[in-house]
Nucleic acid binder design. Structure first.
Lengths: 247, 247
DNA sequence: TACTACATCTCGCAT
DNA sequence: ATGCGAGGTGTAGTA
C-alpha cells in the first residue's frame, strides 16, 4: 500500500476510534518501564478502539510491543517512510515505529458488549471446598472464604472439632515455594492475631513441587490433593476414556 | 464478506502458513485449563504463522481468548455461518468460534528474524549492583550474581567487612510481601547451609509497600532504594527538565 | 521435562 | 490511588 494512502486512512480511522490493524515492515523503539529496540521486520500492528496498541511478530504468543490505553498517536512523514509515534504522558512511555512499508490495512468500528463467563478458577475451587469441606478433612468446618485481611486474603478459613484453627490456601495448578510461603504468612498472622499456636495450614492443589512439599513439611503444614472443579470432571472423563481404551 | 469466500481464503492462507487476521461477529467457547464462554459480539481474530491464535475484543489490553501454537484448526460450514474449531490434543484444549459474519480479512506471509534488545530488567539491576556495590552499602563486597541454587536463585550475594554474609533481592518496581518472603527464604537457606546466623538480607527496589516494610523490619532485614538502571537515567532527565521548566 | 522466578506482566477487587 | 493476589498467566533459564 502506498504510504500516503496509509497515512490518510490511518488518520481518518484513528479519528473515528475504529479498530485499526495493518501488516507492515518497521523498526521499533520503546522507552518507558524499560528500554527496548527491535530491528526491521514484518509485523502486525493493531490499535484498539480505546487506544490500546500491540505489535505482533509472525510467531510467538505475546505481543513484542504494546501500550496501554490512555496515550495518543501521531503519524509523521519521513524520508524513509512514516514515523508512528505513540506517547502516554501519564506513564511517560513512548513507542515509535519507523514504518518503511505497509502491506495491508483494515479498520472498522467493532461493537461488542459481552463479558466472558469463566469456570474453574481458584475462586471456584475455594467455593467447592467450602461446600465440600471433607475434600480437606473429615472434621474440617469452614467459616469463611476469600477473606480479605490487611496482610493478604485467605482462600478458606475454618476450624476442626478440637478447636484448632485451619487456614487453607488453594492453587489451581502446581503449588510451588511461593504458595507455601503464602500459607506460612497467613498462619503466622493468624497465630499472632488470635494469640494461639493452634493454627494448622493446609495447601490444596492438584500437584505440588518436591521442594515445596519439603518446605511445607518442615513447617508442619500439610498438602491435600484437590482438583479445581471443572478440571476434576475433565480428568475423570479422561481417566474413564483411558481406562476403557486400555482395557 | 461472503462466508463462502471467507472459508476459501482462510483454508488457502492457513495451508500456506500465512499470518491471518480478520474482523468478525462470533460466539466463543473455550475448554481446557478452564471453561469459558462469551456471547455474540464483534472481534478481531488472528492466526499467526506458528498456529498461535488470539481473539481481541474492541477494547482492553489482553486477548479475550487464545491458543498456543501446536494445535490445528478446521473450518466447518453451519446453518448459522461458520464454525472455527481449534484443537490442541497435547494440552486437551478447545477453542470454538461460531462465526456469523466476517467483515474484513487479511492474510500474508510475514518475514521477521529480529529479536528485541531490552534494558532495565531485574537482571540489569543486579548487574548494576554487582558493579556498583556502594548502591547497597559502603562495605558491601559482592561475590556472585543471579546465582541459581537448588533452593532458588539469589540476585546478588556477597559479604561485608565484618564477614557477615549478605543476600540482596532486587525488584524493578514496588517490592511487596512476596518479595520479603523470597528474601526471607534465601536468608534462611543460607543460614542453614553455612551453619551461621550472620546473614543479612537486603531488599533493593525503587519502592516498598508499607506492609512489606513492616514485615521486613520485623525479620531484621533492611530496604535500600535502588532504581533499575534505565529508570534512574530517565528519572534524572525528567527531574532536570522539570526543574528547568519550573525555574 | 520439571522447577523457579521474571514480566514494559495485566487485571480485578478491596482498602 | 495503592496494595495484594490471581491468571486458561507466558516465557526464559537451569538442573
Amino acid at each position: 500500500m502506498e504510504l500516503g494512502v496509509f497515512e490518510d486512512k490511518f488518520e481518518e480511522s484513528y479519528k473515528r476510534n475504529e479498530f485499526i490493524t495493518f501488516f507492515c515492515k518497521c523498526k521499533i523503539v520503546y522507552s518507558g518501564r524499560a528500554e527496548a529496540s527491535l530491528g526491521k521486520g514484518d509485523r502486525l500492528v493493531s490499535v484498539k478502539q480505546d487506544g490500546t496498541i500491540f505489535v505482533h511478530q509472525p510467531e510467538g504468543g505475546n505481543p513484542i510491543n504494546y501500550m496501554k490505553s490512555g496515550g495518543s498517536i501521531v503519524i509523521i512523514k519521513q524520508d524513509y517512510g512514516v514515523l508512528f509515534k505513540a506517547h502516554n504522558s501519564a506513564t511517560r512511555e513512548y513507542l515509535e515505529l519507523e514504518i518503511s512499508r505497509v502491506y495491508e490495512f483494515m479498520a472498522r468500528k467493532l461493537d461488542d458488549g459481552q463479558k466472558q463467563i469463566i469456570a474453574g478458577t481458584e475462586a471456584d475451587m475455594s467455593d467447592m471446598i467450602k461446600d465440600n469441606p471433607s475434600l480437606i478433612n473429615d472434621d474440617f468446618k469452614p467459616l469463611s472464604r476469600e477473606e480479605h485481611t490487611k496482610f493478604g486474603f485467605i482462600d478458606v478459613f475454618g476450624h476442626d472439632k478440637k478447636g484448632t484453627l485451619v487456614v487453607v490456601e488453594c492453587k489451581r495448578y502446581v503449588a510451588g515455594l511461593d504458595a507455601v510461603q503464602q500459607l506460612r504468612r497467613y498462619v503466622e498472622k493468624i497465630k499472632e492475631l488470635k494469640g494461639t499456636d493452634k493454627v494448622s495450614g493446609i495447601l490444596a492443589s492438584p500437584k505440588i513441587s518436591p521442594n515445596a512439599e519439603a518446605m511445607l513439611k518442615n513447617w508442619g503444614f500439610s498438602w491435600k490433593l484437590v482438583n479445581p472443579p471443572m478440571r476434576l470432571i475433565r480428568h475423570n472423563k479422561t481417566q474413564k476414556a483411558l481406562d476403557a481404551f486400555l482395557s
